[in-house]
Write a protein that binds this DNA or RNA. Structure first.
Lengths: 344, 344
DNA sequence: TTGTAAGCGTTATCAT
DNA sequence: ATGATAACGCTTACAA
């Protein structure tokens, strides 16, 4: 019952009649553990009957690594990040690594990093954390893998963000839309910027301009999307299609359209990005660009693990492909849609 | 650059010209640290200029506690659990505790517990883990707080699950429904069972019986809800209202209704449970029973922290109140609804 | 093949 | 008020 009742490797050694380091050698399962089969057997048996379980903290201190990974995401409650985390945990857990989670939005990333580093974390996965803006010292001495943020300094995995924007644009252009708007956050999170850039470029390549009143800044949340869409619908002229930087925004926008009795997709087409589960649950189902969130998390973890195994990080790997998932929120541009942009 | 460059408390002591334990005394910020103001000052200054950061792993080993909490949830990707986690992390992080997350669905809870315990975790939050079925030894020596599962052995916090079921029943009965069905998992997760029980009891109290073909077992997921609702709609007679054990199921059910062109709420009323964000995003918006997920997580963490501080766990605290949120998926029972139950 | 000894970075218990 | 000294549980040379 008492907490002190824990079985240590000493107890095992004693029980097996060997020295403590010998027990360590056996239980450490070392590759080149030169230990007699008979002794090994006795030690293992003792460990089993005593119910020995290694103290990872002590191991960590002695070996200088903790067999734990840290994951920092901007917001736990965003399903996209939940997916990334799930993917990372799957890999980490299979490799015997524990996962320290930091998602508290209120605290700065640097503070989370502090916590993790002081716990001798073996590596950190930073998702959309804008690592470039971090204090130089904050990340020295840690193995870092970035998710959805390119960098010369750290390896990482990312989705094809400009491709996502392009795909959205091409889809809308293909449907005949010319009066096109965009809703996205003003944050300096790389992925969002690239989605926007890819979108705008593809539009421009088709000689469609995106007038500034139709480039709405909004937080990447449902509420943000709803507000932005309301503003858009109250504008002098209305776009016939909108690309939203993520699905949360798009769902909010859809909501605003429903409130305003704007028919989707008859009067207004909407494209989101991420393809979170929610996208298939709204009505009509959301057309979106699918981003492999779980895979992103899993690859990030694998990359980190490989780094820990001593492998040289090969810069950024090729971005993960995204794909258009055409569903119910996009349709042909209305015939009466004036291709004219509003007064800027 | 080298990882070994980490400054230890020794370096600080040396730099300040004091013994290492003295430095520890100062930096440990002990309540009754009897140390001369001058020395303290020197030590603090040395620590600051050297950029000293305590090694939590070493602290853990020496003090026998790790200042980390473990959280085990059945499924990271269920927004309800994401909320619980967010609430717990908020509290833990504010108290200087790190959070180890285990949500890998494939691995058994006992295995997750193993990982956590071997890391000298100070306490564990178990959410819907069916702790009662765990091996007796698996939880000895750990501080445990249960979420949404009552127990004589461990303290915990829970929502008012039977109340949730009752509220749903009363709402539907009040709207005149008599042909009522239920969709829920067959798992032995306590909350689900109690939601069901509260619901069935309230129905019975109003002399409404729930015929067995209308008690559908389904996984607590969107897909599960959709399948179950399809089966329900294909039955000989259809219910005029359905209570779903959680929102995910309800959303799936709503989806199935839409596919079958059954009008909600004109022909079919639907009530969910949890009030996840998604509930407000589907069309029509989901009537549901709001369960304070974040608060549940936050309280669990606080309870655990208090236990660690030596406070005696006072059994289970009173369940957190839930409340009906009437939205768009419920309406008066159709006039032609036959109150007759189907042949069982 | 095995045991001895040192050390990981702290905290904690003593004398001083 | 401060400084030795011994833990904490384990790993890892190095010696036997």
């Amino acid at each position: 019952m008492a907490a002190s009742a824990r079985v240590t490797i000493r107890d095992v050694a004693q029980h097996a009649g060997v020295s403590q380091p010998t027990a360590s050698l056996v239980l450490g399962n070392h590759p080149r553990a030169r230990v007699a089969p008979a002794t090994r057997e006795r030690v293992l048996e003792a460990a089993a009957t005593l119910g020995y379980r290694p103290n990872v903290v002590a191991q960590s201190l002695a070996r200088g690594r903790s067999f734990a990974l840290g994951v920092i995401v901007p917001d736990l409650r965003n399903p996209f990040f939940a997916d990334v985390i799930a993917g990372a945990e799957r890999v980490a857990s299979a490799a015997g690594y524990a996962m320290l989670l930091c998602g508290e939005t209120e605290r700065p990333v640097a503070s989370h990093l502090d916590t993790l580093i002081s716990r001798q974390i073996d590596g950190v996965i930073l998702d959309a954390a804008n690592a470039a803006s971090l204090d130089a010292g904050a990340l020295t001495g840690v193995n870092v893998v970035l998710v959805d943020e390119p960098s010369e300094r750290w390896p990482g995995v990312a989705s094809d963000a400009t491709g996502a924007g392009r795909l959205a644009a091409e889809h809308l252009l293909g449907l005949g839309h010319r009066a096109i708007a965009f809703i996205g956050p003003s944050s300096d999170v790389h992925t969002f910027r690239m989605r926007e850039r890819g979108f705008v470029r593809a539009l421009r390549a088709a000689d469609v301009t995106l007038p500034s009143p139709w480039l709405r800044r909004a937080p990447a949340t449902v509420a943000g999307g709803r507000d932005a869409m309301r503003a858009l619908l109250n504008g002098r002229t209305r776009p016939s299609a909108v690309f939203c930087a993520n699905d949360l925004i798009a769902v909010g926008a859809l909501k605003a359209a429903a409130e305003a009795r704007v028919r989707v997709p008859a009067e207004l087409s909407l494209v989101g990005c991420d393809d979170i589960e929610m996208a298939q649950l709204v009505t009509p189902e959301l057309t979106t660009i699918a981003v492999p969130a779980r895979e992103l998390g899993a690859r990030a973890a694998r990359l980190l693990l490989r780094q820990l195994a001593g492998e040289k990080p090969r810069a950024q790997s090729a971005p993960l492909a995204v794909r258009l998932v055409a569903r119910g929120t996009t349709g042909p541009a209305p015939a009466d849609a004036s291709p004219a942009a509003p007064v800027a």
